[in-house]
Each structure stands twice: as C-alpha cells, then as structure tokens.
Amino acid sequence: MNTQEKHASCASTGSVTASPVLDIRGLRLRLPRTARPVLDGVDLTVAAGETVALVGESGSGKTLTSRSVLRLLPPGAGTEGAVRVAGEDVLTMSAARLRALRTGTAAMIFQDPRAAINPLRRIGDFLTESLRLNTGTSAEEAERRAGELLVAVGLAPAVMRQYPGQLSGGMLQRVMIAAALMGDPALLLADEATTALDVTTQAEVVALLGDLRDRFGTGLLFVTHDLGLAATISDRVYVMYAGRIVEAGPADALFARPRHPYTAALLAATPRLDAPQGRLNAIDGQPPDLKAELTGCPFAPRCVHATGICTEQAPEDRAVTAAPDGREHRVACHHSDRVTGSADHG
C-alpha cells in the first residue's frame, strides 16, 4: 500500500519537537439542559507541520472540539480546561486577541463551501475581507495575495471577480482553502472538508491539503468520519467517542493494531476494496444520550469485551506501546489486551 510511503514522508516533516501549535488539555464543555459534558476531558495536540486526524461517529464531539479551537461555541456553552493555540489559551483570551487569532494564527475549512461563502459577494471579497478589515492590509496587497493563493490551490486569479454561484463545489472548496491560508496560519482546521465533495474532487482536495501543509509548514487537524481518509492523510489519529478521546496514536500503528474495541469496531464497519464482504459489520446499539449521566466506560453497552468493571469505573487513559520514534499509542480501555487487530477481520 502506498499509504505506508506517505506516512514515512509525513513523519519526516511532522516531527514532534518544540511546542505544539495546538494543545488541548482536559477540555470539558457543557451545554444547557444536558446531564453530562458534551466534551469530557479532551486532550489533543498538533505539532507544526503535522497532520492529525480526529475521527468518530456523528455526535461524538469531534466538530465541537475543532470549533472550540476558534472559540466558535454554541450559545450557553460552559468550558473547563485549556485550548492553547501557539501557546495562548483561546478560551480565556480577549475579544481583540481572538479576532487576531482567527485572522492569522488558525483558520478553518468548513464542510459545505456552498453554505460557507456568502452567495451575494464576489469571491475576491470573501478572500480578502478578513485581512483588509483586520490588519490594515491595503486592498491591492490583499488581492495580490489572494491571486497567488488561488494559483496555489489550482484556480485562476480571475475567479475573484465571480460570484459563488458561478463556481462548482470543488472549485468553491479550493476557494475556501485559499481563504483559510490568507492569514498565513500556523494551524488549519479541516472540519469534514471533503465530505460534501464527490470522490474525485475529494482526492484532489486531500492531495492539495497535503501539498499545502508541506509547503507552508502548517499543522493540520483533519476532522472526519472517514477512517480510510484518516489513514491516508494523517500522521497521528485520535478516536473520539461520546465526547472522550478513547484511543490516540500513530496512524499506521493504530490502524494496524487498534487497542480500543470502538476503533476495532469502526474499522470493521468500514467498507474495504481489498477484502470484499457480504455485508458490513455495523456496530450494534446507539451512542449514549446526552440527557443521561455516564458512569464507567461510555462504550461499554455496545462493547463485546465489556465486563463488570467497565460499567462501574471509567477507564484511565494509558500508554500501550511506544513507537520506535517515541510517538505514543494511548488507549482508554480496561481490556485493551483482548482487542485483536482489525486488518484481518472478515
């Protein structure tokens, strides 16, 4: 598989040195009228030039996690913990600092570019407005930069004079990416950035993101429910379930030998081209309701390995194996030893 080579090249650029561009510590987020936190002690780091995938089912909290990096929180949300971007805590910074962070340090690529770009304004206006309104960059300077970035994402600078309705979805997502790069960010957040695109365009956009990360040295947090995509693009993977990180580790190690039953089950539920099956192994049961308190492991009711301790005591997050290059593989499961690999499932 050529993904192996890709990982090798990624690992060389994405070394875990210096301080990370994104460092989430014990992030807990509560919403009004819920019995338990939507995010419950999330720890996550992204180093400069590193690609990190955050995977999980819908409702697991992965989008909330990525949005909290820009402090795009739902109304009434209460937070604990810290979300540091380039060393500064996003959750406590002033409004002015927050605007500066959103303009320059971190930028998000949204899922549906058709909804994310104002249909009544020209592409050029969308690309340049953040810089022009916040940094005192002149219109000519901002347009010059927008033109360069449009070329970098494979579009002609002439699209700046067009309206969103005149471009295809794939082109708009490229515009979205160019817009995210306008402020020369240290961190890119891609929230299901390819989900709304067709498969060919998806592959193009993923390749483009990889190129741009190498070229500009940005950290990339890639939020997706697509495990295959996560395996292809990322250096490290975080698996999220019911607002908690249940497993985290180097992409190759984690996919070769998942240590959390949920990761294993997710992998088993992913359609594979190389191992055709009659039907997919769906995970039985539903993710836990936000209206109910949780004791023990959130996955226990759906887990084939669950025993008494699982429903009584929440599993501690612990290191299972350290990869040779020092990157840790961590899991929060009482019975991680019983979980067998997924590569040979079916």
Partner: peptide, 22 residues
Amino acid sequence: GQEHVTVALSRGVPRRKVMGRH
C-alpha cells in the same frame, strides 16, 4: 442563522462588519 455568517466571524471579521456586510 446561515453558516456563512459563522464563517465570517470565524475568520476574524468584526461582528459589526459582519452585520453590515453579510
């Protein structure tokens, strides 16, 4: 309630400007 308003805010465009321009 539309997403592009959130997006404009997420890019650091001041709220007052978002109200007018978008």
